[in-house]
Design a protein around this nucleic acid. Structure first.
Lengths: 329, 329
DNA sequence: GCGCGGCCGTGAATCGTTTCACACCTCGTA
DNA sequence: TACGAGGTGTGAAACGATTCACGGCCGCGC
């Protein structure tokens, strides 16, 4: 007799229903089976409170219904929002998500990839910062905003167009002297195309622009120094600034305001991401919004719809401009 | 011959190293084994690029090294931050986290619990909104801020003390007429103790207070109506307001300011959670901060350290007051 | 009435681990 | 020298699902 504290197995169900293992398996997997058999099995499953053992199934089928999400952090609202949408998408399709946080550490990122391999997830959706991760071609991977190598599909918003849009907006607001500020680690990422698009548009329209590129996190000091140097007698030299993230934009705005600069009176500032503050629903600055839900949907689609063949495909989704005074809600 | 595209198994390692399965198993699990044997096995593992198959192991051991995280959403920074800390804690201990998002839907919450059962996670850490979830006593569960029933341990910040602290602060700032506003669904949750602590302290100090309790999300209209009614000739009747969440506080502040009320000149407002805006690092309002990292650490500890016995224990962690003008960083 | 094809339920084999009873070897002791 | 205890590697059995070759049964057609 089976101990009552151990969960029931298919064998128990089969015995209870008076059928064979194969029949139980068929019922569970929705394979057609004689009416009376199906009923007996379903009844037995109910009575015993049977649940399939995912690990036995995974062992046999080599399918786990599990996708690993590799994210740098959930502190940043963009990552959190993205993870939220990805998980929702995956659950809708009957997949579970295995969450891994790397804290921007390349070593941790590589470790995650190794873990994923050994955990036999069905796939990986990753947003990473290590320039040269060993992507395992044995496992389907989709990256977000990053090029691991050119056989790994990458989903992102249309960063180039976003940069162009930022330039257009600043110029159409009457700005004459533009500045592009970029912060963050060096990556072969789509996000770098924000600057390219911006510069291209500036050149195309014959606008005066400068760029300030910092290849590290958390080193804002040089930016503040630069801004100070270009603040002649309290009058800022630049009247339009494009920052590569919203939080950088917010800090730049705070810094300039502390120096007595009127924003947006004297200087226009545009950020990138389009995340509103949760509490107030307000945007900290004018911004280029990324279609997060659509990015998540697309990443999941590419990962799971194996019938479509993707080879190093890049998927650039449409962006949108949001002025600072906007409130979400 | 094993096909080269199939991942190597312990059997392959054993053959390559010229030892038995049992020996390979011992090496993998760190059980002492003769020096020369260990070396041969480790070499073979290297050569073959062997990784243990988690599903086979899980099947055999009934342990998965996997904890399910049931969260309402990651849009709210409190949940995101908490999930971040929980995942970090779990990874440090060699556990993986299975993320499930319920979107505040009781049905989805129950479904998550069912999924967890069938997925055989080693445990669950849940922050739920359904008043009566069927907790499965076969699976270790720790809740955050919620009482499922009194045999399930619950971790939270010291909400009662937080309420008291809010009352004290408002009074010490010179407020005479206090208001407590609560919004959110009805739950048997620790969060309700915020109001109790607040009221208790008010009574103890003989302070004049009113309460406005809404048992639903997203129905702020009655709050605004109430505030309007108590705005006699532009002068607010209440000069100290305690809101049960930061985002409610932020909205109340925005509403009153739109009515021309000077905050904090005429009215002091305190929220709860202590989450700073990511972009600016600023707190949207004065607030009672919850020790999120400590809550995560404690929840994981209670869940995994089975040697300690918990029966319906409630763990209330210390809170802290943060004035509005503070900046994180 | 007989034979054959199709349908459908059966249960043994299998997936890759862990575990454990067992056999072997060595060393110390009588 | 002989025997037993202790240490160590071995490999078969088991975990709980899926799969597939097999065989029983039914009905149709000649």
């Amino acid at each position: 007799m089976r101990r009552t504290d151990a969960p029931p197995t298919m064998k128990d169900v089969a015995r209870e229903a008076g059928v064979s293992l194969g029949t139980v398996s068929k019922v569970i997997n929705g394979i057609p089976v004689g009416e009376s058999y199906r009923c007996r099995v379903e009844q037995a499953i109910q009575d015993l409170g049977y649940h399939v053992n995912t690990y036995a199934r995974g062992l046999k089928t080599n399918k786990t219904n599990c996708v690993a999400l590799v994210m740098p952090s959930l502190r940043h609202p963009f990552f959190a929002h993205l993870t939220d949408e990805l998980t929702a998408c995956l659950m809708r399709r009957g997949y579970r998500s295995l969450l891994m946080i790397t804290d921007f550490d390349p070593e941790a990122e590589q470790k995650c990839f190794d873990m994923v391999r050994q955990n036999k997830a069905d796939g990986v959706i990753a947003l990473t910062y290590s320039p040269d991760l060993e992507a395992d071609d044995s496992l389907p991977i989709v990256t977000i905003d990053r090029h691991l190598n050119y056989s790994v599909p990458c989903v992102s918003s249309d960063n180039y167009a976003g940069g162009e849009l930022a330039a257009e907006k600043l110029l159409s607001l009457g700005c004459k002297k533009l500045l592009f500020v970029r912060i963050g680690p060096e990556i072969r990422g789509e996000a770098d195309r924000r600057g390219e698009g911006f510069e291209h548009k500036c050149r195309a329209l014959g606008a005066d622009y400068t760029r300030l590129i910092l290849r590290d996190w958390e080193t804002e000091a040089p930016i503040y120094r630069f801004l100070d140097q270009h603040l002649q007698g309290g009058v800022p030299e630049f009247d339009g600034i494009f920052c590569n993230t919203d939080d950088l934009a917010a800090r730049v705005i705070a810094f300039l305001r502390a120096r007595g600069v009127d924003i947006p009176g004297q200087v226009q500032v545009i950020g990138y991401d389009g995340i509103a503050d949760y509490a107030t629903g307000r945007y900290a600055c004018s911004t280029i919004e990324q279609p997060i839900a659509q990015m998540a949907e697309t990443a999941v689609e590419i990962l799971l719809d194996a019938d479509r063949v993707f080879s190093g495909e890049r998927c650039a989704l449409p962006i949108r401009y949001i002025p600072a005074e906007t409130t979400r809600d």
